[in-house]
Amino acid sequence: MPAAPAGTLAAHRLRLRQSCDIVFPGFRTLSPAEEFRAVADWCEANGVTHDQYGQGDLLAAFEDTVAGLLGKQAAAFMPSGVMAQLIALRLWTEVSGVPRFGMPHTSHLALHEEEAYQALFNFHGVPVGERRRPLLARDLAAVAQPLACLLVELPLREIGGQLPEWDELQALKEMARARQLPLHMDGARLWESRAYYGRSYAEIAAGFASVYVSVYKGIGGIAGAVLAGDADFIDNARLWQRRLGGTLVRQSPMVATAAMRFEARLGQMDACYRRTLDLAAGLSALPGIRLNPAIPQTNMLHLFFDRPADQVAETRDAIASSDGRWVAGEIRPTDVPGWSVTELYVGDTLLGLDNTRVLPYFARLVGA
């Protein structure tokens, strides 16, 4: 029988996932109707009114909250992280006069944004370091060409949520300071990093001239990002936000969905990290599965299966149909023939399920 078209198969799997009683990866996602009812109730309880092109009490308060957590003077809400980071790069290249910036090999800008920094601004992105580990001070020392800034991703998603050790991070900050090179943080998953470091977000962000954080990854807002830095930097960022069409007439719906769960989600991160460590210990004992990193540094990791991706996906789909459990998200081939990989993000669902109720399903994915 011929294989189903990719679009048809993807639609089938989306319906299959939605039909499951329990979805292992991530936090529970509300249906649109549930989400809109929840945000309506929250807005009514908190007296929220609409903003007007980014001007309003809800936005101002949320921006101040995030800026304070990050230890920065100011912050601006933006509709997407792509926009926030492009604006940060634009500003640092304007300051330096150098249309060149450094970034990890696996940066979101390099892999998932259709070369936007080059197509829109004619910037040159310089890969720094090694693709299988976090950036270190010696990687920056090896870069001889002038850079407008260095983008540092904390944690690095494409290598399983890895982080540099605290001393290594401080050494990188010191190296950048000595070179008078601004550091920009891609903190899309910064919220997940505090549990490992045992430090405040402000301590982690200290030494970074600008920081981007997501308010839908981890937090659960419907969309949006926050860019933080000093007051002048954010004033100029708002100018570029307007130029790029990012100052929407109403931004309060996006902000409200993040603000209403912001404190609670941050409060769950320590528990999610502890659960990840426990789950990883169980998964590492299963034959045919390898973890990256072996000991997780955030509440996410990558699982490698000694089995082809299509077979693992078919088994996942069969489990979903028979047991109503969605065990894993996207499963893709690796560079090693016959192996496959998936990303596992531990959210509130797995907080309520111990290993005895979870590990047998992962064993089935590898045919055990």
Rank of each mutant, 00 (worst) to 15 (best):
Q52H: 11
A205Q: 09
F304M: 13
F304T: 14
E130Y: 06
L344Q: 14
R138K: 14
D232T: 15
Q180D: 14
A11Q: 14
L286M: 11
L30M: 13
H105F: 08
V39T: 15
E263H: 11
R131M: 10
A38C: 03
Q180I: 07
R28K: 14
W166P: 07
Y345F: 12
A88R: 05
C149Y: 01
S19W: 00
G7R: 05
A225D: 11
S340L: 02
A142V: 05
L58T: 06
I331Y: 03
Q18G: 15
K72C: 04
G125L: 08
R90M: 10
F36I: 14
A225K: 02
A202Q: 08
L183Q: 10
F27K: 14
P79S: 08
Y273R: 13
Q52I: 11
A84Y: 02
L156D: 15
Y117R: 03
A228R: 01
G81V: 06
Q55E: 11
G245F: 03
I234N: 03
L244D: 01
R189G: 09
W326A: 07
P146W: 09
V143D: 05
V346L: 07
R194N: 05
A10H: 09
H112E: 12
D41C: 08
M185F: 01
Q297W: 05
V366Q: 08
P104F: 00
A259N: 09
S200W: 01
P146H: 11
F77Y: 13
D348T: 15
A256V: 06
P155I: 06
A6E: 13
D270S: 12
Y212E: 15
G324V: 11
E34C: 03
A363R: 13
S252D: 12
Q251G: 11
G218M: 07
F101T: 03
E34Y: 02
G267Q: 05
K217F: 06
A264M: 04
V358S: 07
Q268M: 08
Y345E: 15
V255M: 05
A258P: 04
L353P: 05
Q145Y: 00
I319P: 02
L154F: 04
R17C: 11
P5K: 11
P337G: 06
F77C: 09
A206K: 07
Q180W: 00
D186T: 02
M175R: 10
A171N: 07
S96K: 04
Q170M: 14
A171K: 08
F208N: 06
D235Q: 15
L344W: 10
W339Q: 15
M83T: 10
L154W: 03
L70R: 06
D51L: 04
R265T: 15
S284K: 14
A231H: 04
R243W: 01
A228L: 01
L350A: 09
A223E: 15
L353K: 01
Q180Y: 04
A11I: 08
R90S: 13
D57Q: 12
C149D: 01
V95K: 12
E114H: 13
S200H: 01
V82M: 07
A195Q: 10
M254Y: 08
E330P: 06
P134M: 10
V23E: 13
L172E: 12
K72W: 00
R194M: 10
L111Y: 00
R243M: 10
L244S: 02
F121C: 10
Q55W: 02
G198R: 07
A178Y: 00
D51E: 02
Q268L: 12
S214T: 05
E330W: 08
V143G: 01
